[in-house]
Amino acid sequence: MKHRTFFWFFLPTALAMLLFIFLPIISVVTQSLFIDHEQVFVEVENCDFFGCKKASMVDNEATEQLRREQPLGRFVGLDNYINRSHLAFTEVAEIWSGSDSVGNFFKQLFNLPLYRALIFTLVFTFTVTPLLIILGFCIAIGVNSLSQKIKGVVIFFSLLPMIVTPLVGSLILFWMIDSRGIIGSSLQLLFDDPDLSLKASATLTWVTLIVYGVWHAAPFAFVVFYAGLQTVPQDTLESAMIDGASRWERIRYVILPHLAPLVTFVALIQLMDNFRVFEPIVGFNASAHATSLSSMIYSDLDGESRLLSSAATSSVLTIIGVVILLFPVLIRTWRDWDRKY
């Protein structure tokens, strides 16, 4: 295709992405370098019977005007990045020198909002992704051996957890694990502990969120692997059987190698998607025990005091995290392209 034709074909989508993805990134970076204006104070002299006192008062009008004229706030450079709610270098250094063991260090690191969110996000991403791949693979193997008639129905119900709106899906589970809901009260019976609540402890909240994450994403892995199973070379499988390979050996030496590229594909997509974990934290009302990078930005933006600079700073750091996470993918795609052209 000629450059000229390419340009006209690509222009609309390029404009959309330029204006509403690229420029917002610039806007986020800019905002992260500024901070809200401080209130403007004026010196007022209060004179009464006993003499005059000088006092400083907030000049609301001047503050408003300043904020209107310079909505970005005042320039502070990288201060937003190193303050306590973000990278918190001073605090981390203090904790490092003050703590005697690595475990203790992490425990204290957990009090800093950004590290708290980062640790949860990484734990979530790197436990949910392998678990959902394993579960999806098992479902795919199981469904594959069903008769043709019921496959459709099984696939239909299997797709539901993935298709459902994440917030809605997490709410549905949240109500069931409520201590008055079916799962919550069953668990209380099972463990014979009438006070057991999945919402009360941080560990149980994390487990709940991870279970939700696997429930939500396993169907994706299942569908991809199931499609892959349809293309397993029958000849290889049959000759493996003739050679006396057991069921497990056939899975291990024929099916798994065949599905290996699909496993990478699912892993990459799910790493990206799990890294942005956000809705379940809102749905499970879990922000007291678990915050993710996305939910941290959300809570900054939400509510009366919109902490735009703080949200912008977290956003920039999150984007940097995404790029680091994506690096292997980028290199892979690069090699693929070189092979093709």
């Binding site: 917002p24 990134i25 806007s27 986020v28 905002q31 990078l293 930005i297 900054d300 995404v322």
Partner: peptide, 13 residues
């Protein structure tokens, strides 16, 4: 790969 919420911070102002 970018979480949409990171962009939202850029739209607001």
């Amino acid at each position: 790969a970018m979480p949409p919420i990171t962009l939202v911070a850029g739209y607001m102002l």
